[in-house]
Design a protein around this nucleic acid. Structure first.
Lengths: 350, 350
DNA sequence: ATACGGTTTGTGCGCGCGCACAAAAAATTT
DNA sequence: AAATTTTTTGTGCGCGCGCACAAACCGTAT
């Protein structure tokens, strides 16, 4: 492995000069600069990033801005990924801080951004919900030379370092394919179980999944109707009543259910209570309760998009970029969509 | 972050003493040893592994022993993973070398082992095929204090550092479930397409998959018969003839095919030639040709076990263990089994 | 020729650690 | 008590790098 000293000798200059060239710090005669650059190129020299890390002896801070979350919420999963990655990058001098905002208040988002700016972050991870506010924010970051990474959603600016997202539409399309796998020809009804509370939401991200699902149905099973069933997540008895009502009029071979949020375990509990294991049920996200439902046969498939891993990767690559100056390989990363059933889900717990 | 100097001051000793205690190098008074140990425990001190890496300034070599392979072989995938990981760990002073042996000659395996021992490796990754020979080999490694990692198969000794394997039986079981998903009730025939050459093999690892598959069928679809179809991988015309013959007597809704090796693309080519996209076809391994078959609709599902990633992880963790003294978290790692179809496979290419 | 301002270059120190060797302390022998 | 051996402890150097500061260089004005 080559060192800075080797390069310096080859070029007939001192270590300092090489250092100045490598880091573009100026104050070096054009002629020598070119010579050093040439040798660096030819030899493929890259400064030892570990030595560099301990020499700089800096502490970086990454601030992550995501929506507020309650227990069981999808954003809780994301936050978990951020925290996990935070522990891992601690050893190379990167602290990770999470700042949350109310996703229904642009005001609150501004405050979060301003607060982050005030802390003077080395890097930022942001899950944006408000276009204008985000644009203003990332412009300021760019002006200050602070790298930022989008997760979940991205804007169409090109200043971001990376983007880690979930293909929501595609996961809905996939869900439709998986759900209708079984006896495709005979399917004429699908129940889409939805959460009452979500009815009033301005922008429910799972609507994209629904759109993908609907398009698939339209393309492949035009004769099939999709019926919405609204349930209250906090009232077990009401769920039972509503579902009982639906199932009464539904022939046994038409019990196809899908939920686009992560709460399929709610329906699973109902099915378990009624001893109905033969239904065709598809849900999303690898919550423990969902996995349990897979194992006991009440849910057929779970599609896992690992938003926790996405968040963790965002932090990890940004941390490596800051601490090791590691260039990023690609800008856009879309999560894979794992199809889980009772026979393979045990192998997904890390 | 604490440093050795901090610990030394707290304990009222010098850096050297702390160093001796941490690395169990002896030559330190029992009383002080205990005191230092206490402080290290309490403060959760871990020496900065990056500083440690550059200070030791050692080069480690990992030797990997795997069966010989030809283009398109499964072991080629494994070798790819080893090589990839080798590039990544180069930066922390670990070289990776691959040594192959003829998996039908115990003699050749011995030679490979002896050759590796002669090179004085820092660590070893081995995919064992011969029990006795491997046992002899790993005993010698243990005696010399050289850590070793199993991939693919493991022995029942307990000296290994880690094991990275594929749950073959389970993947066969899963394959059966996926294959028979569609119109489960009506299935009465499955064709298991097999490679003629493999007929003579003493131990074909894919036989485990077949066993898992058969057990599933026995348990869930006892009325279903599994018929073997033998093809010659190098003769496209013969494949067509054989398959034509099989299909002639097979009603359209009984065209269920599975292959337990990675060659499902052979059947896919045939199906494509005949314009048969409605068949129910399951195969294994994420070869590019298999993915293509998924996309064009001739193959329904591919089960991917990522033996390349397994190999890469083996090298990575061993390298980190050697270079950074990172303790290993778990001994046994089984690969996940990803279910791929035409709608999610694009998201799996790293 | 000397002084001066600006540019360019070289060197020394420190980051945290491992390791070797010298110094100090303790134990043993004479 | 002195000499010797053995055990224990402290210190200095180097790993590869970043950064600051001093030294050297250069051209121009005095």
């Amino acid at each position: 492995m080559l060192t800075i000293k080797d390069i310096a000798e080859k070029a007939g200059v001192s270590r300092g000069t090489v250092d100045r060239v490598i880091h573009d710090r100026g104050n070096v005669a054009e002629e020598k600069r070119r010579k050093v650059l040439q040798i660096v190129e030819d030899s493929g020299f890259r400064p030892n990033e570990f030595a560099s890390l301990i020499a700089t002896n800096k502490i970086h801070s990454i601030f992550c801005i995501i929506p507020q979350y309650f227990p069981g919420d999808v954003w809780e999963i994301t936050a978990g990924g951020l925290t996990d990655a935070g522990k891992k990058v601690e050893s190379f001098g990167v602290r990770v801080e999470i700042v949350t905002y109310d996703q229904y208040s642009i005001e609150s988002f501004r405050e979060a951004c301003d607060s982050v700016l005030a802390h003077g972050p080395s890097g930022v991870v942001v899950a944006p919900m408000f276009r204008a506010g985000t644009l203003r924010f990332v412009r300021e970051l760019s002006a200050r030379g602070i790298p930022y990474v989008y997760i979940d959603t991205k804007l169409d600016d090109d200043g971001y370092l990376e983007f880690f997202g979930l293909p929501m539409y595609e996961s809905g399309y996939l869900g439709a394919d998986i759900l209708t796998q079984r006896c495709r020809a005979g399917i004429n009804t699908v129940l889409n179980v939805r959460i009452k509370r979500d009815k009033d939401m301005l922008s429910d991200p799972t609507m994209l999944r629904r759109a993908g699902f609907m398009d698939y149905i339209k393309e492949h099973l035009p004769q099939c109707t999709v019926r919405d069933v609204w349930i209250n997540p906090n009232d077990e008895d009401e769920i039972a009543r509503v579902m009982d009502g639906e199932f009464e009029s539904l022939p046994e071979n038409q019990r196809n259910l899908i939920m686009f949020n992560s709460r399929v375990h709610l329906v699973a509990s109902y099915l378990k209570k009624r001893g109905l294991t033969g239904c065709n049920v598809v849900g999303y996200d690898m919550l423990r309760s969902n996995l349990r439902a897979l194992k006991d046969g009440t849910v057929s498939f779970i599609i896992a998009q690992h938003s926790d891993l996405q968040a963790a990767n965002a932090v990890r690559t940004l941390a490596e970029y800051l601490a090791f100056r590691r260039p990023v390989a690609r800008k856009d990363h879309y999560s894979q969509m794992d199809i889980l059933n009772k026979h393979n889900c045990d192998y997904y717990t890390l």
